[in-house]
Every structure is written in C-alpha cells, then in structure tokens.
Amino acid sequence: MGGGRQPFHRSPSLRRTYREQGDNQLPVTRNDVAAAAGVSPSVVSYVLNGGPRPVSVAARQRVLDAVSLLGYRPNGLARSLKTGQTNTLGLILPDASNPFFAELARGIEDRAYEAGKSVLVCNSADDTVRERFYLETLVEKRVDGIILVSASWDEDLSDVLSRKVPVVTMDRYRAESQVSTVLFDNEHAGYEVTRHLLGHGHRRLALISGPRTAPVSSERLEGCRQAMGPGAEALLVVHDTAFSLAGGYRAAESLLSGTDTPTAIVCSSDVQAIGASAALRNHGMRIPEDVALGSIDGTALAEYSSPSLTAVAQPIARMADLAVQSVLGREAKAHHTLKGMLLIGKSCGCQPGPRPTHVPSSV
C-alpha cells in the first residue's frame, strides 16, 4: 500500500494486541479504530455519527470492520456532555404490574426505540414521596425528557421544569397543566359502559370505583351517573378500592354481602373486573346470567378472561405515540384528550363479534 496507513486486516500484530490482552486491555479509543482502518479519527466520527461529511463506501466498511474487531464502544457519557443529550427518556408509572400500565409502557418503549431513545421505567407505587424521588433521580441522570403518570392530581413540576427537562403527563392530570398532557376521556368511558349495561335492561347497577383521591375515579363515576340519568341515586358505589385484582375482589365481596345485590357491575379497570369475577364465582354466581360485568381499559387481559370482558378500551398505541412526540419536542405544548371504544365481550350477555386490531381514537 506504499507509505500510507495499512488497513487493519493487514496488521496481525495489531489484531493480537487487542484480542489477547483480555481483562487487562485498555479501553479502545477512536484513534485506535482510525489506525486499524487506515483512516483519520475524523473519518471514524463521520461514519459513527452519520456525518457531517460523506465517507466513501470502502472507507466506511473498513471503519465498521475495525469497530467490530476491536470491540470499540463510543463513550456515551462524553458524547452526552458534548451534545447535551443522553438518548434516554424517563417513564414514571404508578404500578407497572397493572396490565394497562404494562401495555402503555410497551407502547412508549416502542415509540422511543423508533426515535433512537431508550427508556428508564420507574414505579412510584402510587406514592407521591417515591414519585418525587424518581423525578429527582431522572433529572440527575440527565434524561432527555420525562413521561409521568402521576400519583397526584397536581404534582408540582416547577423544579423539574426550571432545569429545562421536558415533561409530559398522562392519565392523571389536569387539562390546564403547565406541561403537555395526554389524557383519556374517563367520563365518556364511564358513560359508554354504563349505557351499554342499561341497554340490557339492568337497573340495579353498582360501580367498583378506584381510590377516592385518584381523579380518574371521580371522572368515571360522573360518567356512570350521567348514563343513569334520574335513576343515578340507585347506583351503588364502592369507593377507595385499589386498581388491582384484590381490590376488585374485596369490592365485589362487599357488594354481595348487602341486601340489594346488583344485577350488573361496572368496574373502573380490567384488573378490578377480573378480581370481582372471582368473587362472584366463589359465591356460585354466573356471569352474565346472574350478574353482568363491564369495565374500562380494554387490555389484552379483558379479551382473554373468562368470560371475555365488555370494556371501553383506551387507545394505548395512540396515547404512547403522542406522549413520545410531545416529550421530544416535536410539537408545541398541547393537551390531548382521547376517547375510547366500547369492545363487546361476553360478560354483559352479548355475543361478541371480531375485535378490532387497534382502537380508533378522536382527539
């Protein structure tokens, strides 16, 4: 090759140096890659960063081969200090074991991956102190943005925002928030599932609500009452019930211990409905013949439960897409409120047809 640099495949001593040092090997640098590939360090940067200058096909391949051979890994910390980005988003959930939040997290991770970002998932366990700890931790880790499903209606985010970290709140926040929001129309969901059960002729309805402090609980209750109309006072309500299997089970036990057993139960979440159905079966009651069930969330759990649940499904994929777009600054601050779709299962007494592959939404 004359007096120029030799490509790495003609430098066996160089290959041995990096392959045989084992645990004592010094970190491979960009200069090492450049020497192995027979190019300048700047060309290595152009290849790995996609520019700003073009690189010939041959040189690009030599750089990639050298990176693979030497096991080169760019210094992410140094790069983030230079660019001001870590290519990481933070996601704070109240309970990732809840199928709805698990599906939401998956949707957010998928959208973030498409944007070249990884996601750090934190569980607040519906604890505001723990949530604040995670907010501080994510800010310290210099994440590029935070998606928050808050344990509080009005978490103070001024300190986070003062440090220039974009925040998007989901599911549980005021529409007039100081940050972008992606919300679900909970009143509409409560109204739709209640109206459907009323259409089956039920008049003694009960609602298994969520925690009294959660905004979604009061909003879904209001939707149920709107559907009941003048008969809303007949709606039996179980408050302060966790969005969990155990919460649904205990709430159904409470309803069944009363003197006026409902003929239909609206559950504020799919997991509550599954817990309630277990309690009903333990009491020898059939679903939907003795007690019909309807729920809100429309997760895969609803479709594959026995019987399948009639549920208002949240448009999870669209919600995740909007959240990631917003936190990455691809649109100005905005407040989105999406409606769900009633998916028919067998728990209400209907014979369901094919379920859609996705849930359409309106904003």
Rank of each mutant, 00 (worst) to 15 (best):
R281N: 05
L205K: 11
L135A: 02
G38W: 10
D23S: 02
G229Y: 09
R19K: 10
A302S: 13
Q178C: 12
A300T: 14
A206Q: 07
D171T: 00
I92P: 04
V143W: 06
E222K: 02
T261F: 02
Q21A: 15
G294W: 11
R330M: 14
S162D: 14
G22T: 06
K346Q: 11
R355C: 02
N49D: 06
T357H: 00
V237H: 04
R132A: 10
K346E: 15
T181K: 12
C224S: 06
P54L: 12
Q272I: 08
A320S: 13
D159G: 01
H335P: 03
A96P: 14
H335V: 06
T88F: 01
N24S: 15
R132Q: 07
P315E: 02
G51Y: 13
R225W: 09
R19M: 04
S308N: 05
L280K: 10
A264V: 06
L138F: 08
I208H: 08
L120R: 06
V67S: 03
R130I: 12
V55Y: 11
L91S: 04
K82D: 13
S326F: 00
N75M: 09
T213D: 05
H335D: 10
A264L: 09
P94N: 00
S254C: 07
S97L: 14
Q178L: 12
T86Y: 00
R174H: 11
N49E: 06
W153A: 15
A334K: 15
E155S: 12
A35W: 05
A242R: 04
P360W: 15
E114A: 13
A227G: 13
V44N: 05
G2F: 00
V129A: 13
A292F: 04
L207G: 03
F184A: 07
P315T: 03
P356E: 01
S254H: 13
S124C: 10
G90D: 03
S13L: 09
